[in-house]
């Protein structure tokens, strides 16, 4: 009991606390790849600290919903961090939500983000909300389909069960999982507003998706949103790790295994972050109306993965 509560707390703190570090690492890698020196991996923390200290400026027409939304986004993302088994599968809170509810949590945060973006009533805000919902309504089904392939393998939608099943299988390559993994990677790029769907560092309003939604935010609200999107990236990374690279996750009660699991997690995150930076350096952003094709491909790949699972891997 103590073990599971400890791992639960440790994992949540780790995901929430280290999320900006992951963003910093990705940015640093990208700077290195582009022959720049970079701002250092701790830069996101400095930005957050600066933003939290500032006085918030709220647009005149903003309703309470606008102020509530950053907290909802942050809370939802932190909650996702308590559900995904990435250090250990024995998480007390994980029974409260399975993968479908997990997708629901992402959707809840997104709903509030989009509504808040429309709240002030600027042209860019509603444009951002529309684009975000467009990307989401194609990415969300793809994400669910991605989750269904391992769910069918494990006969369960509960994440700890999936991870235990996948970690214990003999080392055979499931073609279905390969399809799901590619689809998942594409969806996570879209959902985290990364290149090629969106560009997190863009300064050109007309090409923005996620950034256009948060133009009216400042100070602590902006800090919470930025932090929440960092946690979102972290969450997607750990979901990918626990579904497709589940080795090293603690499954039984064992204090000594936790450092091993931690080391494995760090290694995977470092490699994954570097890979993301490489991909972002090598590719360019697509036009917004190419995004549906990109996500449609992801959706079809995920469905194909499930079909392969159902038809061939019996």
């Amino acid at each position: 009991m103590i073990h599971s509560i400890f791992t639960q707390l440790l994992q949540t703190l780790l995901i929430v606390g280290l999320a900006p570090l992951l963003v910093g690492w990705v940015n640093q890698c990208r700077a290195w790849l582009q022959n720049k020196s970079g701002a250092g991996v701790l830069q996101p923390y400095r930005v957050l600290h600066k933003l939290f200290n500032k006085d918030a400026v709220l647009a005149d027409g903003a309703s309470p919903l606008f102020r509530l939304a950053p907290y909802v986004q942050f809370g939802c993302m932190a909650l996702v961090g308590t559900i995904v088994p990435v250090l250990a599968t024995d998480l007390p809170f994980a029974a409260a939500a399975d993968v479908i509810a997990l997708v629901g949590l992402f959707a809840l945060a997104r709903l509030f983000a989009a509504l808040a973006a429309m709240d002030v009533g600027t042209a860019f805000g509603s444009m951002g909300a529309r684009r975000e919902m467009l990307v989401a309504c194609l990415a969300e089904p793809a994400l669910l389909m991605v989750f269904f392939t391992p769910s069918l393998i494990a006969q369960s939608t509960s994440l700890p069960t999936i991870v235990e099943t996948l970690a214990h299988r003999e080392f055979v390559l499931y073609p279905s999982l390969a399809f799901a993994a590619i689809a998942f990677y594409m969806v996570s790029l879209a959902e985290n507003a990364r290149i090629p769907v969106d560009n997190p560092t863009t300064h050109l309003e007309l090409t923005m998706i996620h950034e256009a939604m948060i133009l009216e935010y400042s100070a602590r609200h902006l800090a919470l949103i930025e932090w929440a999107s960092a946690i979102k990236l972290m969450n997607y990374s750990v979901i990918g790790i626990s579904l497709f690279l589940p080795w090293g996750i603690v499954e039984a009660e064992g204090w000594l295994l936790i450092p091993v699991a931690l080391a494995a997690l760090f290694a995977k995150l470092l490699a994954g972050g570097a890979a993301l930076a490489l991909l972002e350096t090598l590719s360019a952003k697509m036009r917004i109306f190419r995004a549906p094709e990109f996500l449609g491909t992801a959706f079809l790949l995920a469905v194909l993965g499930m079909l392969i699972r159902l038809a061939l891997e019996k």
Partner: peptide
């Protein structure tokens, strides 16, 4: 969700501040 929301709100207020002013929309 409610606990995470409340904890975030309380922590932000405690560690930093709740100062806020209104202005015209930036756009």
């Amino acid at each position: 969700v409610l606990a995470a929301l409340g904890a975030t709100f309380a922590l932000v207020r405690k560690l930093y501040h709740g100062r806020m002013r209104r202005g015209p929309a930036w756009d």
